[in-house]
Nucleic acid binder design. Structure first.
Lengths: 195, 195
DNA sequence: AGGGCGCGTACGTTATCACGTACAAGTGTC
DNA sequence: GACACTTGTACGTGATAACGTACGCGCCCT
């Protein structure tokens, strides 16, 4: 077996076990949820076998994830998560001002922030890495103005009053094409916590 | 084999073939690049077999992609937009109007809603049972006016711009003592455990 | 202490993956 | 037209995934 294969198996196995335990499930519980047998799950977690895509998808579903998300939990390990200390208040890029409305406390299940973009401004630079941990989801509401969400190779034009929900662990940014100022509220739900 | 499994296989196969042809490679060319045999690649592309993660990773690498990227090319877009006109609206008690800004989809990690309380109105009646599942947390931001949060035997007065976070599975309600109208945004994050 | 239960893993069996070989069909060159 | 080459797929075989059954271990209750 090639090294790359071993790396593949090693990564998904411990991750599946960590997620399963975080959800307080036994092997038999997850077997019931996913449709994959408990002994098979045990082998996968211990890295003894490489499941097929069909089985891996079912395991991911049992953990309330898509398979690409499950894989991403290990692949994106080089992405750093930037926390409140750097983005508490003030400006990001030129023309971008934000405030974080929720306290930096352990009990926060989601983070709420308000962003103001001057015409032509954006929340980040082209090609910036994702700023949130794997598994995070984000909701954004456009209060005033128009913004464009650029994410994962696609662009979505949003008008005042529109709401968008997306995977916050994919590289993304909001741009204000103008002409007026744009205000949006963002809610980021925590990703799947690691052990 | 379940339909979901079939959908999984159907998706990656045509995608692999499309990418291979776009790169002007034959099955034998890709076999050489990926380390997976040409007959196997043919079977995968035709949906005749579900490759293991180890093999699928090698196929993705031969196409200059990570496996999560290959999978994401077929997954439904994780971005969900709710237009201003699509908000779900309702009225609670007299003087209380609300709109739900997020879609009623499984991928929603949190629900975002906007509430308008006329002077003297409240979001619920005295002693109403909690409306959220155990473990839920809620964040509320007062946009305009003044509201009082009554929860667990205590009362908290909130002014425009204030944010409050609390356990949403405790009986609670927001009251508008007036004199003006009060507007607040609420974010409810799902509980910790699901049955 | 004993019994029952939950949990994770060993093991045997079956199904399927993954490969190597070979065939059929199409294309290009002489 | 004949030949060589490329390409995709059929088929047989070995390896391994995937399952069902059962065991060992630890914990809890009586």
């Amino acid at each position: 077996m090639a090294v790359a294969d071993q790396l593949d198996q090693i990564h998904i196995g411990p991750r599946v076990r960590a997620l399963r335990e975080a959800m307080d499930l036994s092997l038999r519980d997850l077997a019931e949820r996913s449709g994959v047998s408990a002994p098979m799950l045990s082998q996968v977690e211990r890295g003894e076998t490489s499941p097929t895509l069909a089985v891996a998808s079912r395991i991911a579903a049992g953990l309330e994830l898509r398979l690409s998300q499950l894989l991403r939990l290990d692949e994106e390990s080089s992405v750093s998560v930037v926390r409140c200390a750097e983005r508490r208040r003030g400006g990001g890029a030129a023309g971008h001002a934000f405030e974080i409305l929720t306290p930096p406390l352990p009990g926060q299940r989601a983070e709420l922030s308000r962003h103001v973009l001057a015409p032509g401004a954006a929340t980040g630079g082209e090609g910036d890495p994702p700023m949130h941990e794997p598994g995070s989801r984000e909701i954004a509401v456009v209060e005033t103005g128009t913004v464009t969400l650029a994410i994962d190779g696609s662009r979505h034009e949003l008008f005042a009053g529109d709401t968008v929900t997306f995977d916050a662990d994919l590289a993304h940014r909001f741009e204000n094409p103008g002409p007026g100022e744009a205000v949006l509220l963002a809610v980021v739900s925590a990703g799947l916590r690691r052990s």
